[in-house]
């Protein structure tokens, strides 16, 4: 790993003020540290958010569940508040990585990274999420901009995630058997006035699935497979297989 200067801020304001030059925020470190170890990423300044108090709070305010950016996956999975408000989200968190990864990885880190096969981005899109940052808010629909790309500006820090309370929410994924990342994952959120469906893993970045939303809203037949111009394909699964898997995961999530 390339050496860096470590900053341990005591507040969000100190953290963002420390961001200059080739810098990065460190949350749970379970993507960033491996990337730095392998030489894919090198930074001059690493700003450790572990020293900032108050960033892991979880609570319900009016029609939203708010989860602090530094809430660990295990913390979300085990939170009585999350289990009561959106039980399907607690189950999603309990299915990320392995127990040791869940003890460190955070929702803010996952959302900021926007891995095209990560689980949380699908939940944010389906649950009409709000990404609150040091500079304002982003709607999830505008936040995720394709593989590893987000609306975050340099030095903009996610503080918490707001998820609209649904009538029902379920997430189904076909995990890669080694990494537990989604070969295809589908999140279905039903609200009184809408159905929102999001797909991760099957495309090059998380997307809404409008055909599935329309079918669920109308009670019509569900699409057999995902029809999308940017299907993912790699040595693990080709595009047709992922498109088909998305259809299977849609049925599981819709039936849950």
């Amino acid at each position: 790993m390339q050496p860096f200067e470590l900053i341990r801020p005591a507040s969000v304001a100190e953290a963002t003020a420390a961001f200059r030059g080739d810098a990065a925020f460190l949350a749970g470190g379970h993507t960033l540290i491996p990337a730095m170890k392998s030489g894919l990423r090198a930074v001059e300044r690493l700003i450790d958010l572990g020293s900032v108090p108050g960033l892991a709070a979880i609570g319900v305010e009016s029609d939203r569940l708010w989860i602090g950016a530094m809430a660990r996956h295990a913390g979300v999975a085990g939170s009585p508040v999350v289990r009561s408000a959106i039980p399907g989200l607690a189950r999603l968190a309990a299915g990320i990585g392995d127990p040791q990864v869940r003890a460190r990885g955070t929702i803010g880190g996952s959302v900021a990274n926007n891995d095209p096969a990560a689980d949380y981005p699908a939940a944010l899109l389906a649950l009409d999420g709000i990404v609150e940052t040091s500079r304002g808010t982003h709607a999830a629909d505008d936040f995720f901009q394709g593989m590893f790309a987000t609306a975050l500006a340099d030095g903009e820090l996610i503080t918490r995630i707001g998820l609209r309370l649904p009538d029902r929410f379920a997430y189904a994924k076909f995990p890669h058997p080694a990494s537990r990342y989604a070969l295809a994952g589908v999140a279905v959120a039903r609200f009184a006035d809408a159905v929102r469906v999001a797909v991760t893993g099957a495309t090059t970045g998380v997307v809404r699935w409008q055909a599935a939303e329309a079918a669920l809203a109308a009670g019509g037949p569900l699409p057999e497979a995902l029809d999308h111009p940017d299907l993912a394909a790699d040595l693990h699964a080709d595009a047709d297989y992922r498109a088909h898997l998305a259809g299977v995961m849609l049925r599981r999530a819709a039936a849950a």
């Binding site: 460190l26 470190g29 450790d48 460190r104």
Partner: peptide
């Protein structure tokens, strides 16, 4: 490389000493 950090198993290869 699993160790216990405050009693919880974590991967010591993915943890900075500073953390």
């Amino acid at each position: 490389c699993n160790i216990l950090l405050d009693g919880v198993p974590v991967k010591a290869c993915t943890l900075l000493v500073a953390q």
